[in-house]
């Protein structure tokens, strides 16, 4: 039996995506919209999407679980993705996660190449790109993210 969505959540989701067409091709934009609105995605949100868009729950999960950027961590932490790919590694980016993990409310993830190889090490703080990343400018960006 499907996850019990509870009417309120389904209705809230319907309101948040009211302007988006309800066809399958809007699934990813819908997930982005909900991730931005609710801070992260969750099983019950996906169940609500299933109701609102008439897409089977498992199919939505199959799609959502494919992508690395969709947020699942509750509590609205700041997600920092540090590029640890070849070029940024040559600039010692792999040390950054260790430094950052002491920040409270920060989830640090390693990222494949962020396409900033000329200005590495690179990181994403939320959706903001930080070039020539250092513990200092990352901390500043995290702070801004939290308070702004």
């Amino acid at each position: 039996m499907a996850v019990n969505t509870g009417m309120p959540l389904t209705e809230r989701v319907a309101a948040v995506v009211a302007d988006l067409p309800k066809d399958r091709s809007q699934l990813l934009p819908t997930l982005w919209r909900l991730a931005d609105h609710f801070g992260c995605l969750s099983p019950s949100l996906l169940a609500a999407v299933s109701e609102v868009m008439h897409i089977p729950y498992a199919e939505i999960y199959g799609v959502a679980s494919f992508y690395a950027l969709l947020p699942w961590d509750p509590g609205q932490p700041v997600i920092v993705r540090v590029c640890t790919d070849v070029m940024c590694s040559l600039k010692n980016s792999s040390e950054l996660p260790t430094v950052l993990k002491d920040h409270e409310g920060v989830v640090v993830k390693e990222s494949p190449c962020l396409g900033q190889c000329d200005l590495g090490p690179a990181a994403l703080v939320g959706s903001r790109v930080v070039r020539n990343a250092t513990p200092g400018n990352l901390a500043a960006e995290i702070g801004e993210m939290r308070h702004g």
């Binding site: 990813l28 799609v63 950027l69």
Partner: peptide, 21 residues
Amino acid sequence: RRGAGAYIAGEETALFNSIEG
């Protein structure tokens, strides 16, 4: 359309599937 972190979505037919949901 904004991707969501999948290198393979740059492959043209994978990209179509991504747009199609």
